[in-house]
Design a protein around this nucleic acid. Structure first.
Length: 324
DNA sequence: GCGACAG
DNA sequence: ATCTTGTCGC
């Protein structure tokens, strides 16, 4: 199966972020949020911070000219770059007083040029969203597949398992290792993971629903990774997340299930198994809200549904066995 | 003190 | 997601 058009020719966001930072002149500063906005989404500011870490950035990138939105300096994770940052700025005539840029407003450089790659990706999501179907009635299903991805730096290990819906028997198991080419940015998870799992999903049997570790329509723009997977792989999909991405909980029918509302729309359920923290279930594509809930609960023996738990364990095992 | 956005 | 020792519980 060919990689879907929406997952091809993805931008190199690490390179794009650094190209933006290179535009900040000596003696001026910008913020992680401004660089993120130039990339096309302010929500990518944490990614920008990560991309400027010593191990990630190129030698010629003026990383020290990027500070927090209030003018305060922050270093990178697990390293003492804070002092070096202040020294480099002072050397360019930028005064730093008690950890903050003195004339922050005046020194802000705000003419960052970029092709806004994240805006383009958001536009792709919005176009594909129109194809998502969330039926009212149930569809016939006899198998459940689960996929998950484990990471080791820029290496990814993806696994897919398929179980029989009735017997829970393991029918199929596939795994694959590949290189990561897109960062994790909330609400753009599909662009990071779907290229990695696509080869595993090709030619799934009919009547198989794919369970994905992430969200379906429970997404700030109604198009989570499970929706995207459903469209590009043309299979029914369900999203199962361990943390809430957006929306609010609305009182449920019983103590274990409550609805998730986003902009007034019912987009999924929060389900707590026993005393566990809840998981968040939402339809991806080709399946109803209620059937999504039913299928996940059918495989809920612990906090994580069996198919996802098995895929998770296999992906981890593969990563650990590849250490050497 | 508030916010802390899936993996 | 991953970084990480011992530790608490089924």
């Amino acid at each position: 199966m060919m990689l879907h058009e929406s997952l091809k020719d993805l931008p190199d966001l690490w390179a794009e972020a650094q190209e933006i930072v290179r535009q900040v002149p000596r003696g001026r500063v910008t913020t992680y949020g401004r660089v993120a906005e130039a990339l096309g989404d302010r929500a990518s500011s944490k990614f920008v911070w990560l991309a400027l870490t010593p191990s990630e950035r190129a030698e010629d990138v003026p990383w020290h000219r990027v500070v927090r939105s209030d003018g305060s300096l922050v270093g990178s994770r697990s390293s003492d770059t804070l002092a070096e940052k202040a020294t480099l700025l002072s050397g360019e005539g930028v005064a730093v007083t008690s950890g903050k840029i003195a004339d922050f407003r005046d020194l802000l450089y705000d003419d960052l040029k970029s092709s806004s790659p994240l805006s383009a990706l958001r536009a792709k999501q919005m176009r594909l969203r129109e194809r998502v179907k969330v039926p009212r009635s149930d569809v016939r299903l006899s198998r459940v597949a689960g996929v998950d991805v484990s990471y080791d730096g820029n290496r990814a290990f993806a696994s897919l398992v398929t179980l029989d819906f009735e017997s829970e028997e393991l029918l199929d198991e596939r795994s694959r290792s590949s290189e990561v080419r897109f960062p994790y940015i909330p609400s753009y998870l599909a662009f990071r993971e779907l290229p990695l799992v696509a080869p595993l999903v090709s030619s799934l049997d009919e009547e198989t629903v794919l369970m994905y570790d992430g969200n379906g329509i429970l997404h700030p723009h109604g198009f989570g990774v499970a929706c995207h997977a459903g469209i590009v792989f043309d299979v029914p999909t369900i999203g199962v997340a361990k943390r809430l991405l957006c929306g609010t909980l609305s009182g449920g029918q019983n103590a274990n299930v409550s609805k998730v509302l986003n902009h007034g729309e019912m987009v999924g359920y929060a389900v707590a198994h026993g005393e566990h923290k809840p998981i968040y279930i939402s339809p991806g594509h080709g399946i109803s809200r209620s059937q999504s809930l039913f299928i996940v609960r059918r495989f809920l023996k612990s906090r994580i549904p069996i198919p996802l738990q098995m895929a998770h364990e296999r992906a981890n095992a593969l990563r650990r066995s590849a250490d050497d």
